[in-house]
Design a protein around this nucleic acid. Structure first.
Lengths: 123, 123
DNA sequence: GTATTAAGTTACTGTTGGTAACCACTTACG
DNA sequence: CGTAAGTGGTTACCAACAGTAACTTAATAC
């Protein structure tokens, strides 16, 4: 976004947020932080994700060097996905934001409720 | 996302990432971290944002209690926007991620280039 | 009277996020 | 031998939403 319209902003943060901002990416990184996994295993455990979305998400993460894809040449070929070192370091960074999120979620929830009921009155 | 399809996951992180994942939200928070500003001032300084998107973004941020909207009752009524304490604390949290982003951007860029050229060969 | 600035809103469009259905291949079961 | 179920995805399609362009209301200046 920043890069695309990039009038004044050259923004490394956007590169990361474009990836992190995606719901599935985070869930997949969270899952993989527990250990490597294969496609269908992820598919089952992430819950609600479709094969396509998983495929797309994994390819994005692989492209950014956050996830490594390894084909194991057994008879029905298996594919193993795991976090790279870069991926693990991002996981830690997300952890910090996640911490903030947990701490302040009540405040946000409260604010939203207040805002919404104020809107209802206005309407 | 998490909340919407919320099969298994009740995820406070998503609440925050839905907001942070949006390009404009971050840019606006960054801008407001420098000091309060009015609508058209923001419009000019953010660069590339349309009135609608600014309006939408600000209302989201206000709803989440990150930004305060103050109407000043002068003759052409003015509206002042500024970060709340919650907003400032999020700004600091974003800072951490931003730091990670700056540190690792070269690695990500490199990985993308490598990945893309590998794809080109394959095609 | 028409131009500008304030702070947005409305109506529309194009991209993209997401679903449902399908594919090719191998092993297991009856 | 046929068919079901697991592997790892792709293709075709649609709806929602992000984003743009144009308009609004009201006041002050020229």
């Amino acid at each position: 976004m920043c890069a695309k319209r990039a009038q004044n902003y050259d923004c490394p943060v956007r590169d990361v947020l474009d990836r992190v901002g995606d719901a599935w990416s985070v869930l997949v990184i969270l899952e993989l932080s527990k250990g490597n996994a294969r496609f269908n295993a992820l598919s089952r455990v992430v819950g609600g994700i479709s094969p396509r979305m998983l495929s797309v998400t994994l390819r994005h993460l692989e492209r950014d060097g956050l996830v490594a894809r390894t084909v194991i040449d057994v008879k029905p070929p298996q594919v193993d996905y795991g976090l790279t070192e870069l991926g693990r370091s991002l996981y830690r960074a997300i952890g910090a934001l996640s911490h903030w999120a947990e701490q302040h979620q009540p405040a946000i929830r409260e604010s939203r409720t207040a805002f919404d009921s104020a809107q209802d009155v206005a309407a």
